[in-house]
Nucleic acid binder design. Structure first.
Lengths: 142, 142
DNA sequence: GGTGAAAAGTTCTACGC
DNA sequence: GCGTAGAACTTTTCACC
């Protein structure tokens, strides 16, 4: 269902999601229309779910990035699942196994903003916060 | 340094990183060349760090996605920092504060693959693993 | 599944405001 | 900063293999 050629295309898009079909085609010796057809199929199948950007939040006024895990109080799960994604500070949310039910990555202006955000969360669960110091870049494997 | 117009462009690219300059320009009433100029500037400044894709790892044969935190053993930090990004299973790595030093998202084939991965990690630190059940999609705020 | 060709659309560059 | 205009390139569609 996903061939080796598809995986090569995915590898190229992982490095640069804005690569043109023509550019991808040149790298893997395939015509632009064939590349387009394959990418379309990967999108339709749901293998490629979205095209994102990676931002420098510090430069956008949110210099404090944190992971927050949340142990939800009884009966608050459905409320949290629908509301948590609406906070502009929240970048990503996952349901996880273990002592915490929710894992999220959050971008905040400063300590005060973090405090306000935690004050919101503790209505619905017990949060546990880890400051993000830096992200390590994946090696170019070529 | 980053204007309101820049932020609008970023919001559009967040939803679809492959949006063309012309398409973005139509949405915010700006010519394609102006959009291009602004995006270029955001890339050069490092505000936009990369263009990524979000994949369905299950469809690519890695149905098991986990967060792993790692408490590094004395003297192993520099080794881990340089080596951990080379594992194909590792999708993202962050240095964090708190009882664990490293936070990563990992995609694996199955339980056995997870076990093998953990066996690798425990040479360098104490891991703590959380299974990812699902990702919650951010609401479209329009 | 793949190509190639033609029309439509986009990007890029240079220049003027 | 923005717009326009033209050349170069890319996307898209489609007929054909």
């Amino acid at each position: 269902m996903v061939s080796e050629i598809d995986k090569e295309i995915i590898e190229i898009l992982k490095k640069n999601a804005r690569a043109s079909f023509a550019e991808i085609g040149r790298k893997i010796a395939l015509s632009p229309s064939s590349v387009r057809e394959r990418v379309q199929k990967l999108e339709d199948l749901g293998v490629i779910k979205a095209y994102n950007i990676k931002l420098n939040h510090a430069m956008l006024g949110s210099g404090l990035e944190v992971f927050v895990m949340l142990k939800i109080f009884d009966g608050k799960l459905n409320y949290i699942l629908s509301e948590i994604t609406t906070y502009p500070e929240v970048q990503e949310v996952f349901r996880i196994t273990g002592p915490y039910n929710i894992h999220m990555r959050v971008a905040l202006r400063d300590q005060l903003h973090l405090q306000e955000f935690i004050d919101e969360l503790i209505k619905y669960g017990s949060p546990c916060t880890y400051l993000i110091l830096s992200e390590l870049k994946k090696e170019e494997v070529l």
